[in-house]
Design a protein around this nucleic acid. Structure first.
Lengths: 132, 132
DNA sequence: ATATTTAAGTGGGATATAGTGGGATTTCAT
DNA sequence: ATGAAATCCCACTATATCCCACTTAAATAT
């Protein structure tokens, strides 16, 4: 299971190292996809297949499903993990999620997410205040 | 069952020894997670699995479920108990709960909690006055 | 009660490794 | 053919981890 929060660097070659605790579970080839709430999602190949199956089960006659499928499949990419445990973040996904030099990688059970550092901190604060 | 209150030191390497009375029940690998009311929760692997199962039943398309999952999984970490019965408190969780050199570990049935010493004393007082 | 032993809690040095940066080579597109 | 970008490779640094040792508290024996 993927859990935990790690602040990493997105260098000027758009490389980002995966937290070492995620590497074994993630394998050598992963899928980077747009995530909800302006973050990036990353999946193992296996989990990505599950996501795709769910989407293909939903009818393409419903406009919401069509748009969500386009959103996910259209922007997702397979990337390889290099010898140092890093992946290359595609430029279009990077700019979509306002990723800068400092990013936060979080584990959320079956997926990981990459956040703009400030956006993640704001999001956490919001959740805590709502819990009262 | 985990019960009792223990004042321990959080050293400058963020290590904290578990109360010896908790060690057998906690095992060699435990999960540290954010808790409500500004404390940290620690679970056995088994108890943590129960928590995650509850959360994984909820749909990720609902924004409330998403945010709570991110909050819990994103900040939780698995930590190993070292040869001296200590665990390493992640820096992000430490600062979130205002933990300083002196912390209080309390047992609460199936989980333990780590508190800032002063916050715990204030909380106790508050509960006592409210009980009148 | 006092001495002796055992264990809990803590501190700190040495080593391993995660994370990062950057040069050199290769691949790809124009 | 040329420029840009991706990949490979190596190296550096900060930090986590391992290991050992000290101190204080508790337990046992005399």
């Amino acid at each position: 299971m993927l859990i935990g929060e790690y602040t990493h660097t997105l260098d000027d070659k758009n490389r980002m190292s995966l937290p070492v605790k995620f590497r074994k579970e993630m394998g050598k080839s992963i899928v980077v996809a747009p995530g909800l709430d302006n973050c990036l999602s990353i999946f193992t190949i296996k989990e990505w297949q599950k996501v795709s199956e769910k989407l293909s089960d939903s009818s393409m006659l419903a406009s919401d499903n069509r748009s969500f499928s386009r959103f996910m499949f259209g922007q997702a990419t397979t990337v390889d993990v290099d010898a140092n445990g890093r992946i290359l973040i595609p430029e279009n996904l990077k700019s979509r999620s306002n990723l800068t030099n400092k990013v936060v990688v979080i584990g959320v059970q079956n997926r990981a997410e990459i956040w703009n550092e400030k956006a993640w901190n704001d999001y956490k604060k919001l959740v805590e205040t709502q819990a009262d």
